[in-house]
Computed example of a mutant assay.
Amino acid sequence: MTAPLVTCPTCQDQFPWVEDQLLRWSPRDGRFLPVEPVDTTNPIKLADQRASCYIRCPNPSQDTPQHYTPVVLGQSPAPVVIGLVGRPRAGKSHLLAAMVQGLVTGRANALGVTARPGDGVQHAAFHRGHIEPMLRGESLDGTGDGVVGYADFLLVRSPTGERPVIFFDTGGENFRAMAHNSLRSRFLLNTNALMFVEDADQVMARTAGGNEWISDALARLGVVPHLRSIPSTVVLMKSDQLRYTHPVDRWLRLPDDRGPLVANDFLTESRDVYAVLDQYGANFARDLYDRFDRCTMHFVSATGVAAEDERYPRGVHPMRVLRPLVALLAMTGVLTGPEAAQVGR
Rank of each mutant, 00 (worst) to 15 (best):
Phe167Met: 10
Arg291His: 14
Phe299Cys: 00
Leu328Thr: 03
Met99Gly: 02
Val316Thr: 07
Thr336Val: 03
Gln75Val: 10
Gly118Asn: 00
Asp48Phe: 12
Ser182Tyr: 04
Met99Gln: 10
Arg320His: 07
Phe168Val: 03
Ser215Asp: 12
Val38Lys: 13
Tyr312Lys: 11
Val38Pro: 01
Arg136Thr: 14
Asp141Asn: 14
Leu227Ser: 08
Cys295Glu: 05
Glu132Ser: 09
Leu254Met: 13
Gln279His: 15
Arg87Thr: 13
Gly281Ile: 04
Pro37Gln: 13
Asp265Tyr: 04
Arg320Tyr: 01
Gly171Ser: 01
Ile214Thr: 01
Ala179Met: 09
Val234Ser: 00
Asn190Leu: 14
Asp20Val: 10
Leu23Ile: 06
Met1Leu: 12
His226Pro: 05
Gly102Lys: 08
Leu189His: 09
Arg250Tyr: 14
Pro34Gly: 10
Ser229Trp: 09
Pro58Arg: 04
Pro255Phe: 08
Asp48Pro: 06
Ala208Asp: 03
Ser52Pro: 11
Cys57Phe: 06
Val203Met: 07
Pro88Lys: 07
Gln12Pro: 07
His127Asp: 13
Phe187Thr: 04
Asp13Tyr: 05
Gly118Asp: 03
Lys238Trp: 02
Arg228Lys: 10
Gly304Thr: 03
Ala219Tyr: 13
Gln49Ser: 05
Pro324Asp: 12
Pro27Leu: 06
Leu267Tyr: 15
His226Tyr: 12
Val35Ser: 08
Asp199Leu: 01
Val18His: 13
